[in-house]
Computed example of a mutant assay.
Amino acid sequence: MNYILFDGAHRDSLLPFTYTRPVAEIRIGILTIREKWEQYLGITTTTVTEDYLSKKWPMVEMEHNIMISASYLPNPNLVEQIKNLKVGQALVHETEIVAFYTLEDEEKDLEDYQTIEIDSAPITVKHTWDIFSKNGDAIKEDYNLITEDRSSQPLSSSVFAVNPNNIFIEEGAKVFNVSLNAENGPIYIGKDAEVMEGSIIRGPFALCEHASTKLGTKIYGPTTVGPQSKVGGEVNNSVIFGYSNKGHDGFLGNSVLGEWCNIGADSNNSNLKNNYA
């Protein structure tokens, strides 16, 4: 079966991030949306997106295709329902198309499909604020997916750990003289990542491969630091897609940072106005 992820109706409400990437390339949790689907499906996916993005992310159509809205994150129940679709059938959530089975070059209105309601509501990414507000739940789901039937690298005796069974350290990661509290959610440290000395981290938290926290970093809650990124200072409930830096003191909260961005030293953002609105 050929699986194709399409941007769908929520692409515009995910601007500005979708100016430079399909919806499927948004990172939420540990993985991008595409990486999640490919892990569950066990196969490479392609994309239906804006024309100017399609040179980098082309669509590959075959004789039999299942189209999936990239605004929906996979879970075992949803993946099973999608795999069981037959030609001419579509999965819906309320009135929205989640996935449908189509043949090559078939021109058919979605109203002509036999619709099936999904069994349970998955995590959805339909607005920019969904990326950070649902990140904690997404980290937990990705953590279970990535670490299933695998063993973590051992924690150093220098690490103060709360609920260490909920902490996973990949090969090559450096984690010494830090505090890791996984009581409220898992902590995932990716391959060749580094948590520098004095860092204090509360889960859910994901530090992706080759990323790092600087000396004395404080992470308060559901936060993802994408690959090759650096963070320092205070960070709360934020997602950094990758290849970006907030490497110095200052506060970043309830935020999404794209790729190839740099936050200067002592920069601060506030999730409340001065009048507490």
Score class of each variant (00 low, 15 high):
Ala138Cys: 04
Val92Phe: 12
Gln153Val: 13
Ser157Arg: 12
Glu141Met: 05
Ala138Arg: 03
Lys108Tyr: 06
Val162Asp: 09
Pro222His: 06
Ile169Gln: 03
Ile219Thr: 03
Lys214Pro: 10
Ile146Phe: 12
Ala182Lys: 01
Glu170Cys: 13
Pro222Asp: 03
Thr147Lys: 00
Glu141Arg: 04
Asp137Gly: 02
Pro154Tyr: 12
Thr213Ile: 08
Gly88Glu: 05
Ile189Ser: 03
Ile187Val: 15
Thr115Ile: 02
Glu209Gln: 11
Cys208Thr: 11
Leu155Thr: 09
Ser199Phe: 00
Asn135Phe: 08
Val125Asp: 04
Tyr143Ala: 01
Ile200Arg: 06
His210Met: 11
Ala206Lys: 01
Ile116Ser: 00
Thr95Ala: 08
Pro154Ala: 09
Asn184Ser: 14
Lys126Glu: 15
Ile131Asn: 08
Gly198Met: 10
Val92Glu: 14
His127Ala: 10
Glu170Ala: 08
Ile201Tyr: 01
Ile219Lys: 00
His127Ser: 07
Met196Lys: 15
Ile219Phe: 02
Ala193Phe: 09
Pro122Glu: 09
Asn177Met: 09
Asn166Asp: 12
Leu215Pro: 08
Gly216Phe: 01
Asp142Lys: 03
Tyr113Thr: 04
Val125Phe: 06
Ser156Arg: 05
Asp137Pro: 01
Ile167Trp: 07
Trp129Asp: 12
Phe205Trp: 07
Gln153Phe: 13
Asp142Ile: 06
Thr213Ser: 13
Ile131Gly: 07
Leu180Trp: 01
Lys174Ser: 13
Val195Phe: 10
Arg202Tyr: 08
Gly198Trp: 06
Asn184Phe: 12
Ile169Met: 01
Glu96His: 08
Asn144Lys: 14
Ser212Val: 14
Tyr220Cys: 07
Lys174Cys: 11
Val195Ile: 15
Gln89Gly: 00
Lys191Ala: 12
Pro122Trp: 08
Ile146Val: 13
Asp149Lys: 02
Phe205Ala: 01
Phe100Cys: 10
Val159Glu: 02
Tyr220His: 14
Pro122Ser: 03
Pro154Gln: 10
Ile139Pro: 00
Phe205Leu: 02
Asn163Asp: 11
Tyr220Ser: 09
Lys140Asn: 04
Gly172Ala: 05
Ala173Thr: 14
Val175Gln: 00
Thr217Gly: 03
Ile97Asn: 11
Thr224Leu: 05
Tyr220Asn: 08
Ile169Pro: 03
Ile118Leu: 14
Glu106Trp: 14
Thr128Tyr: 01
Asn163Ile: 01
Trp129Asn: 13
Glu117Ile: 00
Ile169Gly: 05
